[in-house]
Design a binder for these strands. Structure first.
Length: 281
DNA sequence: CCGCGATCCTGGGGGC
DNA sequence: TGCCCCCAGGATCGCG
């Protein structure tokens, strides 16, 4: 899936088209994605203004007029696209729906926003805004890695006594929210920590480096519009370009940019891990 | 509680 | 051109 930087890129792309705008009409073209959509979804969205477009972890949160929030998750292959006429245009023909456009929102300003998700691992739900943190998908999420609640003291506390590999710990959304396979691999490389190290065995200095590396890689990736491997697109349809900056992810057999040793691939918890045995210990 | 494997689904790419 | 196999950015569930 889009990880935090990709979701943040999508949120920023959607904001000008959606924030402060009313949803003129909604089309719901299937019953659900990973889970069934809420009852009468199209009717419940139509006519409502999007007051705020936010993000928590990998979820986009659209705060709607009337006290409900639309929760959007892009799964592994989800995209949000914007098409349609510029505001003020006389004609309001919208683009023909693409394959896998599951939900289409026609905004009052003429923009057409579509949720497209080939693999259908994504999700969309509605939940009362004032208790948004109690939604089952959001309850239990760890702190935002770019927020104040995430620092070395916190992370060290969560890793203490745990035997699972640090790679798996960082993938656990209850420990820190928003990281996925790409940015975990990249952050571990930057921090020079082996993905196989038992979580509880890291020195405080290593945890410090890890927190710094996680923050840095996320900030840089957001600035680059996220990473496009196969699915991620910015709302404009443009690719992200952080993938050109990967030091280890997807680079098995290539020289490590730090030490020149060949980047290795291993499988942990069924997922590929890319790392450099020369500089990660 | 902990850690891991299987699973949901489609599509793209490589090998034959 | 086609088929088969493998792989994929996620998150949940159930097992030992």
């Amino acid at each position: 899936m889009p990880e935090l930087p990709e979701v943040e890129t999508v949120r920023r792309g959607l904001a000008p088209a959606m924030e402060g705008q009313r949803i003129a009409e909604a089309q719901v073209r299937r019953e659900g994605l990973r889970w069934p959509f809420p009852e009468r979804l199209a009717e419940r969205l139509a006519g409502r203004r999007v007051e705020l477009l936010g993000r928590r972890s990998k979820y986009i949160l659209a705060g709607l007029e009337g006290g409900e929030t639309m929760i959007l998750h892009l799964g592994m292959s989800g995209r949000m696209t914007i098409s349609g006429q510029a505001p003020g245009s006389f004609h309001h023909e919208r683009a023909t729906p693409e394959t896998h456009d599951h939900v289409i929102l026609d905004m009052e300003n003429g923009a057409r926003v579509a949720l497209n998700d080939a693999r259908r691992f994504g999700a969309l739900d509605l939940w009362p805004t004032e208790m948004i943190e109690t939604h089952r998908l959001l309850a239990g999420l760890g702190p935002e890695p770019l927020g104040n609640g995430f620092d070395a003291a916190y992370l060290a506390g969560r890793l203490e006594g745990r035997k699972l590999p640090i790679k798996a710990a960082l993938m656990d959304q209850k420990i820190v929210a928003g990281l996925g396979n790409i940015y975990v691999c990249e952050a571990l490389h930057r921090a020079r920590i082996s993905p196989k190290r038992p979580s509880g065995g890291l020195s405080r200095a290593a945890v410090d480096r890890l927190v710094t590396a996680i923050r840095a890689v996320l900030v840089e990736a957001i600035e680059a519009g996220g990473s496009s491997i196969s699915d991620h697109r910015q709302t404009s349809g443009e690719l992200g370009y952080f993938q050109h900056t990967f030091r280890v992810y997807g680079r098995e057999g290539e020289p490590c940019p730090t030490c020149g040793r060949q980047v290795q691939r291993l499988v942990q918890s069924g997922r590929s891990t890319f790392w450099c045995p020369g500089c990660q210990h």
